[in-house]
């Protein structure tokens, strides 16, 4: 806008020649404008170039290569050669025939569903708590995000320490208050271990839910809450009929993001149980690691990776739909 205005000022065009002389003046003007447009496009592309190169190398190449690997007969010897003989769907067949892989898929579903449920219920309760005014609320809100900042492997290791059979803080307090009469084998009992991992992951994910839901609750207009109060709605009705419908979009996004990073969980399980006892806590991620990096069957590991990738990407259309605001503002208009 300004450039055009300036050019108009520096190149005086007689009002009369504007129509007749257009054919004469315009090529030079358009040429200059076009070259400016081209220069800007070029600059934009140059600004993008490092990111495009990075995304191609660190995302596109591995994802494509992972698909290739999953159809190859790999062995430790083929790793150095980058390619291996074609194996058809053999890797996928072995993955689906393998009881541990199948169990890992089931565990991943249970783990993801359980985590999301637990994280949502506790996270929402805390978010509601933080909307109330009470002494120490700002401090509590800033400290509640601590689990989110710790390295995940550290969290896994700490919970391994706390859930020890003997000398573990969890068993100690349960027995001190009389909730358990003998130490519970949290990590070595195959029926219990997955629940222990689940508890640790809920602890880990609650802050994220709390934070996002809290900021959504902050945006609920006071007038709406007051109107509901005037109409004689009780606290439960206000929550269910007024507040939840308003923040529903945020709840959806939170669940979606929670899903995306729960299906990826790896470090926590490795630190806490290593996938044991007797593979009772193997998730797709940990079993895929085992296939690729412990028994060096990269083909099968890649096949299982693709199962995970499909699972994770199932929700991506929904994710893009919910993020459409961020896509739409890409039309270039400044807010």
């Amino acid at each position: 806008m300004n450039i055009k205005a300036q050019r108009a000022a520096t190149v005086p065009v007689p009002a009369t020649s504007a129509r007749n002389g257009a054919g004469q003046l315009s090529p030079a003007g358009r040429g200059r404008r076009l070259s400016a447009w081209r220069r800007r496009q070029l600059a934009g592309w140059l600004f993008l170039a490092p990111a495009v190169a990075y995304l191609l190398f660190a995302f596109a190449l591995p994802i494509v290569y992972n698909v290739m690997l999953s159809f190859e007969q790999t062995s430790p010897a083929t790793i150095a050669q980058f390619t291996a003989p074609f194996a058809g769907a053999a890797n996928y067949r072995s993955v689906f025939d393998d009881p541990t892989s199948r169990a890992a898929i089931v565990h991943t579903f249970v783990f993801t569903a359980g985590s999301l449920l637990g994280q949502f219920v506790i996270g929402f309760a805390l978010a509601l708590l933080f909307t109330l005014r009470f002494p120490g609320r700002t401090l509590a809100r800033s400290l509640v995000i601590v689990p989110w900042l710790l390295p995940l492997i550290v969290t896994g290791v700490i919970f391994k320490f706390l859930f020890q059979v003997e000398g573990g803080a969890v068993n100690q307090i349960l027995m001190d208050v009389g909730l358990a009469h003998h130490p519970i084998d949290w990590l070595d009992d195959p029926h219990l271990a997955l629940w222990t991992v689940l508890i640790a992951n809920i602890w880990l994910g609650v802050p994220f839910f709390t934070l996002l839901l809290y900021s959504a609750l902050q945006d609920v207009p006071v007038e709406v809450k007051e109107a509901a109060l005037m109409d004689g709605a009780g606290p439960w009705q206000r929550l269910r009929l007024v507040i939840v419908p308003i923040i529903l979009p945020v709840i959806e996004v939170t669940f979606l993001l929670g899903f995306v990073f729960t299906v990826k969980v790896f470090d926590l399980v490795i630190g806490l149980t290593g996938g044991g006892p007797a593979n009772a806590t193997q998730l797709i991620t940990t079993w895929s690691y085992n296939l690729s990096f412990q028994v060096f069957n990269f083909g099968q590991g890649a096949a299982l990776n693709n199962v995970l990738l499909v699972l994770a990407l199932i929700c991506s259309p929904l994710y893009l739909l919910l993020s459409r605001g961020s896509l739409r503002s890409s039309s270039g208009a400044a807010r």
């Binding site: 992972n66 990826k264 990269f298 990776n305 990407l313």
Partner: peptide, 30 residues
């Protein structure tokens, strides 16, 4: 900048955030 790739690239970035690290790690190792 009004670039033709903007929508595609931003969508890819959203998808990139979904890709599990183990998928990348297996291939990146090789």
């Amino acid at each position: 900048y009004r670039l033709r790739v903007t929508v595609i690239l931003v969508s890819s970035l959203l998808i990139c955030q979904i890709v599990p690290s183990i998928v990348l790690a297996t291939s990146l190792f090789i």
